[in-house]
């Protein structure tokens, strides 16, 4: 009987232990930067939902395209209406997992280089991507960051000829998220 109780408590601990491996944020940040000799364009989105499962290494990110904020109202308008078509494709998302989770010890403070592989969906087009990133563990909190490039052409985003020289062929995306533990 005593043995059964011990096993039961261990099992319960295992279950609750597993559910405590989930981290999330609803205010992560994604920004993009396009640089040409004509002009630099930058936009920020600070309403990114991201979930990290530290047991399986699964990571997901999703954001609303219309929440990107530009310095110029006209750029914001063109981005939403002509390029990303926010009304038709309101969200962009990524779903994937850390492929080198074995090299990460989240119980120890440090900066860990990770490689995340998964599917990136922008403008209704889904592509398999591998992105290098960093997981930072500091005093029990986890944050993630990544910088990578995407080409608008790969996601069927057409840039009109008139502004083709103003928008880079490859756009730099920066992701930063500070997670909190799901209770």
């Amino acid at each position: 009987m005593k043995k059964a109780f011990v096993i039961c408590s261990l099992l319960m601990f295992a279950v609750t232990g597993a559910s405590a491996q989930l981290f999330y944020t609803k205010n992560g940040s994604v920004s993009f930067f396009s640089s040409t000799t004509m002009e630099d364009i930058k936009a920020n989105n600070n309403q990114v939902i991201s979930i990290l499962n530290t047991r399986t290494g699964e990571m997901q990110f999703s954001l609303l395209n219309n929440a990107f904020h530009f310095k110029k109202a006209l750029m914001e308008e063109h981005f939403n209406e002509d390029y990303i078509e926010s009304a038709k494709y309101p969200k962009s998302s990524f779903k994937g997992s850390i492929s080198n989770l074995g090299q990460v010890d989240l119980s120890k403070d440090g900066v860990y280089t990770v490689s995340v592989t998964g599917n990136l969906t922008i403008h209704g087009v889904t592509k398999a991507v591998t992105v290098p990133g960093k997981l930072t563990v500091k005093g029990g909190t986890i944050s993630a960051s990544a910088i990578f490039k995407v080409s608008p052409k790969d996601y069927n985003i057409t840039i009109p000829a008139a502004v083709r020289n103003n928008i880079a062929k490859e756009i730099e995306i920066t992701v930063t998220c500070s997670y909190e533990k799901k209770s």
Binding site: S19, L22, Y24, I49, I51, L63, L64, K91, K182
Partner: peptide, 9 residues
């Protein structure tokens, strides 16, 4: 933006 039903978020 939807959360994740599996993890109850």
């Amino acid at each position: 933006i939807g959360g994740d039903a599996d993890m109850g978020l």
